[in-house]
């Protein structure tokens, strides 16, 4: 993984500190051209990885990238699923209705793969089919790391349904020949659980910032775990939803030996440039 990864929250109206800013961003990025322009700026600043959710609009971005010489070295890290799509579907259609909508083919026909899995109540097989459905839009795009979103990782952790974390891990390796990644808000608990399930040195993305925002169990515990180097770690929410100034924020996270990559999103060339150069500078200072 490269030291700096570019995120997508700003494109889809996700802002953890202000719903109002989120709406303004939704308006600004209504057209795909606006998103592509920012991605191009990121590339010009030397960032070649885009980590993004499986939002419908990412399909359009993939269409632009696919087969385009300009993006031949560009990597996309899909993060699945776009949870609100499913959460709203469950409220509207129930579990069965949701599965029916998102698993391809007729789930009530045993002639279809999904139907058979459904009839046999083979939940792992259903999960694989849903992963495949999410991955469709990335066909022909370079996706060396594929992530499961924190809401699913953490839900499975709490429920003790470790089986599905393992299903995801194996399916991504076997079918996509990619590195499976786990996004979490509960880093210490996740590492303990994955290790017990036989997954060593997993690729993990967690909230890591100087003020301990969304670091469940507290910043001390996180710092201990990070120093143990039990995973390949991507730091997200480094700016703590805007509560920290970039310099202070990146200096902190760069000082942690054990953080491999840093994820951030920005909407303007100048902000991308600023963040990228701070990270580059701090990384050289710390790691030589």
């Amino acid at each position: 993984m490269e030291r700096v990864l570019f995120g997508d929250n700003q494109f889809f109206g996700v802002n953890h500190s202000s719903d109002e800013k989120a709406r303004a961003q939704t308006m600004r990025f209504q057209q795909d051209d606006a998103i592509m322009a920012v991605l191009d700026s990121a590339i010009e600043e030397g960032i070649n990885t885009f980590m993004c959710t499986t939002h419908d609009r990412v399909g359009e971005i993939c269409n632009r990238i696919r087969g385009n010489e300009k993006y031949k070295d560009f990597k996309v890290y899909p993060c699945m699923p776009y949870a609100h799509k499913y959460a709203n579907a469950v409220t509207e259609l129930g579990y069965l209705g949701t599965i029916k909508q998102f698993v391809p083919g007729n789930i009530f026909s045993t002639f279809a793969k999904g139907g058979l899995a459904f009839m046999k109540k083979d939940f792992s097989e259903l999960a694989k089919l849903m992963i495949d459905a999410e991955m469709k839009m990335f066909h022909g795009v370079n996706t060396p790391v594929i992530w499961v979103q924190n809401v699913i990782t953490d839900l499975l952790l709490g429920l003790g349904m470790t089986d599905f974390l393992v299903t995801f891990y194996k399916h991504i390796k076997e079918k996509y020949h990619a590195e499976p990644g786990f996004i979490t808000m509960n880093l210490p608990l996740l590492l303990d659980t994955l290790e017990k399930a036989g997954i060593e040195n997993p690729t993990v993305c967690a909230s890591i910032n100087k003020i301990g925002f969304r670091m469940s169990g507290g910043i001390k515990k996180y710092e201990e775990v990070i120093a143990q180097k039990r995973c390949r770690l991507v730091a997200m929410q480094v700016l703590a939803a805007g509560a920290l100034a970039p310099k202070e924020a990146f200096e902190y996270v760069c000082s942690l030996d054990g953080v491999e990559s840093i994820l951030f999103g920005a909407s303007s060339r100048s902000n991308i440039h600023q963040s990228k150069s701070i990270i580059d500078r701090c990384s050289i200072l710390v790691h030589g």
Partner: peptide, 15 residues
């Protein structure tokens, strides 16, 4: 005032 300064950490975070 933002959520980040007004919210205490929890032991397990889901949503």
């Amino acid at each position: 005032k933002y959520l980040t300064e007004l919210t205490a950490n929890v032991d397990y975070y889901l949503r």
